[in-house]
Each structure stands twice: as C-alpha cells, then as structure tokens.
C-alpha cells in the first residue's frame, strides 16, 4: 500500500491544493472548460431539439445520431482537433461540446414531443399560435427531461475534459498525465480520486438542482413522470 500512502501524503499537503496550478486552480479551470463546452452544446442543441420536437420531424435521424456518436472515440477527436491546430484546452472543449450535443438534442426533442397531446390541444383550442404552444405549453412540460439531459451532459463533459491533458491541455487530467509521465503513481491515484470525487459531487448537486427546476406535478422520485401503458378496460 505504498502508493496509497504516497497519494494520501500528496493530498494532505496544503501546498498541493493552494499553489498556482494546484488542485484548486486546476479544478476552477476544469469547471470553466466544462461550462464553456456545455454552453456551446446547449445553445445549439436545445433550441434545435425543441423545434424538431415541435414540428415532429427527424425522429429517425435522432436515433441514428445518438447511436452513431457513441461509437466515435472522444480521444481520437480531441487529438485530431489538436493536430488540426486547435491546441489542448480548445480541442478538448470543442470535442466535449460535440459529444454533448446528441444527449441534449434527444432529450429536448423527446421532452417537447412527449408533451401531453391533450395539453397541446387545449392550448390550440385557446387560440394559441404554434410558437406560443411551444413556449407556454410544450417547453414547460419538457423541463424535466431537458434538466435531466443537462445533468447527464454536465457530468459527461466533466468526465471528458481530463482527456485534454493527453493533448497538452489543462484541467484536472494534468495531475494524472503528469504523474504517469514522471512515474509518480501516488499522484496518479490521487488525481484519479480527485476527478472521480468532482464528478460524483457535481452529479449530487445537479440531482438536487434538477429536482428543484422540475415543476412539482411532474416529479416522481426525481424523474419526470412518463405515462405507462394505459390500463385495459375490462
């Protein structure tokens, strides 16, 4: 358990945390990169997904996109972007944004598309225009799924950003990459623990946030209610 001791000693040193480019600095950098990547993806994916869901187009493309992007290795894309001249952080942020788009797109699409048809009809019957139905009926009903999509996306991006370190970028992955490069495996272990904890804590915080933004009637155990098969009349 020599490595474990080494990791604990390293983590226990206040300087590890507070020096410039210490854990605190790297965490801030990590979170800023995450925020930029998620923002880029959200600006693009949520309006598009909502609009496609509203018009009901492109459901086949949605499924294909979701499946296809899963097969593409993120590391390959980051390294390709980096080799294309977009270095370290930029490459990782862009790659993370690219991989965040399908999740957000599918969730906003499904959320808007899955809005109760009776509610949509009621909106139309009250004389709402198509756009008003989208903004005042379908989108509020979709908040649960969109929030769930954002949570998944943020956690996924936080997990992707460490790969930046392999392409010469920053963020918390640096601790792991640097530790491997210098064969200080205690630091590798410590870096892994820090990254894992960040992801877990963020997921926990977001779970609470997700519950808060989901309108009360839509909440069921923190998940948006989706009607199951209707009971058959005898």
């Amino acid at each position: 358990m020599n490595v474990l001791t080494e990791a604990l000693v390293w983590l226990n040193d206040p300087l590890t945390w507070t020096r410039s480019d210490g854990i605190i600095d790297l965490t801030v950098e990590h979170l800023v990169m995450t925020a930029i990547a998620v923002a880029i993806a959200a600006v693009f994916a949520i309006p598009l997904g909502a609009w496609l869901g509203h018009t009901g187009q492109g459901s086949g493309a949605m499924v294909t996109l979701g499946n296809a992007t899963r097969a593409v290795p993120t590391l390959g894309i980051i390294l390709l972007l980096a080799a294309g001249g977009l270095f370290g952080n930029g490459a990782a942020v862009l790659a993370a944004a690219i991989f965040a788009v399908p999740v957000l797109l599918v969730n906003s699409y499904e959320g808007v598309r899955g809005a109760d048809p009776a509610a949509r009809d009621a909106g139309r019957g009250m004389g709402m225009s198509g756009t008003r139905v989208l903004f005042q009926v379908e989108l509020p009903l979709a908040t649960g799924l969109i929030a769930a999509g954002l949570r998944t996306t943020i956690v996924q991006v936080v997990a992707t950003i460490p790969l930046a370190a392999l392409a010469g970028g920053g963020g918390l992955g640096q601790i792991i990459a640097f530790g491997m490069g210098t064969q200080r495996y205690g630091q590798v272990l410590a870096g892994g623990i820090v990254v894992a904890l960040l992801a877990l804590v963020l997921d926990g915080v977001l779970a609470v946030a997700q519950r808060l933004v989901t309108p009360a009637p839509l909440r069921v155990n923190g998940r948006p209610r989706r009607p199951r098969k209707a009971p058959v009349e005898p």
Binding site: I176, V188, L189, G192, A199
Partner: peptide
C-alpha cells in the same frame, strides 16, 4: 454511482494499485 466515475479516473485509480 460507479457509472458516474470518469473512465480516465477509474483507470488512474486502478493502475497504481494493480500495476500499469
């Protein structure tokens, strides 16, 4: 919970304990 742990972090945690 385990699924939330990034793969890079999991490899980094396992490698020092199990060998590179």
């Amino acid at each position: 919970v385990l699924y939330t742990v990034p793969s890079l972090a999991l490899f980094a945690i396992l490698a020092p304990l199990l060998g590179i």
